[in-house]
């Protein structure tokens, strides 16, 4: 069953085509990796799907509902959560209060307990009562993930949650994500620069370059694609992580 369908979505800033006709679909419980060089339009694509930006053209369908151009809060309520690459914590609140806000958007009852459960799951317990503005980067990355999970999404867009973590910290998070997929049928779309993680986690990979889809396929197909190799030549990200 298709959970997320993105159809020929476009966005230009001052005549510059940041996203230029991108289409793809994601099945329920699938994990789609999105890769591409800097400036390929990955984050803009997330902004367009999540409603932070309104597309100039194209369609975004979530669970069979057309959410194109809907404001972000409606898309979120429809079951899509996202994290931000440049972390956006509620700086004046503690970690727990941050996650609580996210939990409260779904249900008043038991928000506390749900927040605590998510905090434990992503390993933020030592910082539970720390102000989010004072967290180190790794903590903020986890907070992004915790807040998104606390909204109990069907579809989760992750924008580089793994970078900024040391390899030992990544492993439990990867297990958490695959666990959520297996147990609850969570659908994941992730932007990631750490190739090893993308290749291990993803069922399919979408390669963006200059706002367009350069290639799609299984991780093996994509890594063999000569166009993809050309784009990444010199960036040496395949060996990273």
């Amino acid at each position: 069953m298709t959970v997320l369908e993105v159809n020929d979505v476009r966005k230009a800033f001052r005549g510059l085509h940041a996203v230029d006709g991108v289409s793809f679909t994601v099945e329920r419980g699938a994990i789609l990796g999105v890769i591409g060089p800097n400036g390929a339009g990955k984050t803009t694509l997330f902004d367009l799907i999540g409603g932070t930006l309104r597309p100039d053209a194209g369609r975004v369908v979530l669970d069979g509902r057309d959410v194109t151009g809907s404001p972000a809060h409606r898309v979120a309520r429809a079951g899509l959560a996202r994290t931000f690459q440049l972390m956006r914590p509620f700086a004046s609140m503690t970690v727990r209060e941050n996650v609580c806000v996210a939990a409260l958007t779904r249900d008043r009852a038991g928000a506390d307990e749900r927040a605590d459960a998510v905090i434990a799951r992503v390993g933020l317990e030592p910082w539970r009562d720390t102000r989010a503005g004072e967290l180190p980067t790794a903590g903020r990355k986890r907070l992004e993930l915790a807040r998104a999970l606390a909204t109990r999404p069907h579809v989760l867009l992750l924008d580089e949650v793994l970078s900024g973590l040391v390899p030992a910290e990544r492993e439990p998070l990867l297990e958490l994500l695959t666990g959520l997929r297996d147990a609850e049928g969570l659908t994941l779309v992730l932007i990631e620069h750490i190739m090893a993680a993308v290749m291990r986690l993803s069922d399919r990979v979408l390669v963006l370059d200059q706002g367009r889809v350069l290639a799609t396929g299984t991780p093996e197909e994509v890594t063999r694609d000569p166009r993809v190799i050309e784009v990444y030549l010199g960036e040496e990200r395949f060996d990273d992580g």
């Binding site: 966005k11 800033f13 001052r14 510059l16 940041a18 800097n38 400036g39 990955k42 984050t43 803009t44 902004d47 932070t52 930006l53 931000f84 690459q85 440049l86």
Partner: peptide
């Protein structure tokens, strides 16, 4: 990534 820096602000219309 440019979009991240200035979210939802209306596009400046460059007359």
């Amino acid at each position: 990534m440019t979009a991240e820096a200035r979210p939802v602000v209306p596009e400046p219309r460059w007359g």
